[in-house]
Simulated assay, not measured.
Amino acid sequence: MAIVNVSLQVIPNVPENQIYSVVDKVIEMIATSGVKYEVGPMETTMEGELDFLMEIVKKAQDICVSEGASRVCSVVKIDYKKEGVTMDEKISKYR
Rank of each mutant, 00 (worst) to 15 (best):
R95N: 14
Y94L: 13
L53A: 01
E28N: 00
E55G: 05
V14H: 03
M46F: 02
A60D: 07
Q61L: 06
L8Q: 10
S33A: 14
M54V: 08
N13D: 14
I30W: 06
T45K: 04
D51N: 04
Q9C: 01
V26I: 05
Q9Y: 03
S70M: 08
E47N: 13
Y94D: 10
G84F: 07
S92I: 14
F52I: 02
R71K: 13
M29S: 06
Q9L: 01
I91H: 09
A60S: 13
I91P: 13
E28F: 00
L50A: 07
V14D: 02
A60R: 02
D79K: 13
I11H: 08
R71A: 00
V85F: 15
N17L: 08
V65I: 14
I30V: 11
V39K: 09
K58C: 01
Q18E: 12
I27Y: 12
G68F: 08
K77A: 01
Q61F: 12
K90D: 15
Q9K: 09
D51I: 01
K59S: 07
G68P: 08
M42C: 02
L53W: 00
M54A: 04
V85K: 15
K59E: 09
S7A: 15
M54T: 06
M1E: 02
D79R: 07
E83I: 05
K90L: 05
S7F: 03
M29D: 14
Q18D: 00
Y37W: 00
G34M: 03
V14Y: 05
D24M: 01
T86M: 11
E67A: 10
V4R: 03
S33M: 08
P15T: 01
Q18T: 10
M42W: 12
K77C: 01
E89V: 03
P15R: 00
K36Y: 06
G40R: 13
Q61S: 10
R95A: 14
E49R: 09
Q18H: 07
K58H: 08
C64N: 10
P41M: 14
R95K: 15
C73M: 03
M42K: 05
E16L: 15
M29Q: 08
D62Q: 12
D51E: 09
G48S: 11
V35E: 11
K36G: 08
V10Y: 07
V6A: 07
K58S: 05
E43C: 04
I11W: 04
I11T: 12
M87D: 00
N5K: 13
E43M: 10
C64A: 03
I19H: 00
V26C: 10
T32R: 15
M54S: 08
P12E: 00
S66I: 06
K82Y: 13
D24E: 11
S70H: 03
S66T: 11
E49I: 03
E38N: 14
V85G: 13
E47V: 11
